[in-house]
Design a protein around this nucleic acid. Structure first.
Lengths: 214, 214
DNA sequence: ACGTGTGAAGCATTTCACAGCG
DNA sequence: CGCTGTGAAATGCTTCACACGT
């Protein structure tokens, strides 16, 4: 196996998203006892095409064996390494409302190496509780201190839209480099910081569009 | 204003997503009292570029006035019409867990014309409650009947991953044509039906990737 | 013989630059 | 004159087809 040290080559966003998908599929394939898979196997499982999969891998190195296929276990390691999830990421959740609790309730974050190590909340009554599910709860004023003490790298914004911008700026000021924003608010981050938006209303509108123009 | 009847021209997915964004920005601009905007105004507000905005609009018609700009109110109507959200969509929520409640707790769905008119849940004890926030609660067995009686067009899957596939098939069988899937499960739908996935773990992995290869 | 890895072709989307029109 | 609307150029992504290694 050869793992290219990719740094200055530009990799399509879509490739990264697909790698995450492949990783999931591999987990299932591994559970079902498969040791070796071909690009067509993966393609069938996750609804892409084999050539695309091979191209996606090729950005990062040669993960397979010609004439044979991919060793599932190795491939998974390689993908995780390529994605940067071969380790744990310290995250903070901002906003202890319905959505925040929903995020904590699911294990899909923890399972993929994203650890929520602090929660920030505006409402003093909630903060008074001190912690939630063993995760310490802080007021907004503690953000600067806690982010640096805990080594928090990623902030998850799950507050109401009106407060999203302020929260984003506080996070950036506190030194957070990556933000996942669940509010329908346009946020701008300085160069070097990374922002991604999760906005299911947009997806619903996409569905509405396709259903209208069938 | 000219509104093209677009039907057989293929419009990029990305264009549709951006139209949703523009629509949001316009709401803000309108609240701030602006009557007329230029493509650069919108671009500044939502972080795209003017040429792209004009191109996006051009798929659907001529929404602006040369030398002047766009009348905010008209433009919003045109965009909503283009997206197919100039009316209300009947939706069903499947899964009354944390995530489901979080979705109900936000007004961002209702505000954009997506009305949740029924909830389906597996746990009989919850179903026993009969309704939640005035929205009727049903068991899974009632899906076929309720979907057709209520005229439900879109299903939102917020159950645990293990049950997602079964739920998706039930929805399709019941006649639902659009599905928004919140679980990390690969679902396949028959041609004619539309599926979109919301998967924030993938977005987090995208952040992790960029932060690793800075 | 088989399935990966990869240049090249094909296709889609974005950006440019300017004509057109109020 | 200013800003939209739009063909044409540039860029980016996906698919093809075959060489390569086992």
């Amino acid at each position: 196996m050869v793992f290219k040290k990719v740094s200055r080559i530009k990799i399509p966003e879509a490739t990264i998203r697909r790698l995450s998908l492949y990783d999931r599929c591999l987990e299932e394939l591994q559970r079902s006892g498969k040791r070796i898979v071909s690009s067509s196997d993966i393609a069938r499982k996750c609804g892409t095409n084999p050539a695309q999969i091979r191209k996606d891998f090729a950005y990062f190195g040669e993960f397979g064996v010609r004439g044979v296929g991919y060793y599932v276990e190795n491939l998974q390691k390689d993908i995780k390494r390529a994605l940067g999830i071969d380790r744990s990421w310290n995250c903070a959740l901002v906003g202890a409302g319905n959505l925040g609790f929903a995020l904590l309730g699911t294990d899909s974050l923890a399972k993929r190496g994203f650890k929520i190590s602090a929660i920030f909340e505006r409402d003093p009554i909630l903060v008074e509780m001190g912690s939630f599910q063993d995760i310490p709860l802080f007021g907004m004023d503690d953000m600067q201190r806690v982010v640096s003490e805990f080594g928090i790298k990623i902030g998850i914004i799950a507050v109401s839209p009106e407060n999203a911008l302020k929260v984003a700026h506080s996070l950036i000021d506190a030194g957070v480099k990556g933000i996942l924003n669940f509010t329908p608010t346009t946020i701008k981050v300085p160069p070097g910081a990374i922002l991604k938006n999760v906005d299911f209303a947009i997806d619903l509108e996409g569905i509405a569009f396709q259903m209208s123009s069938d």
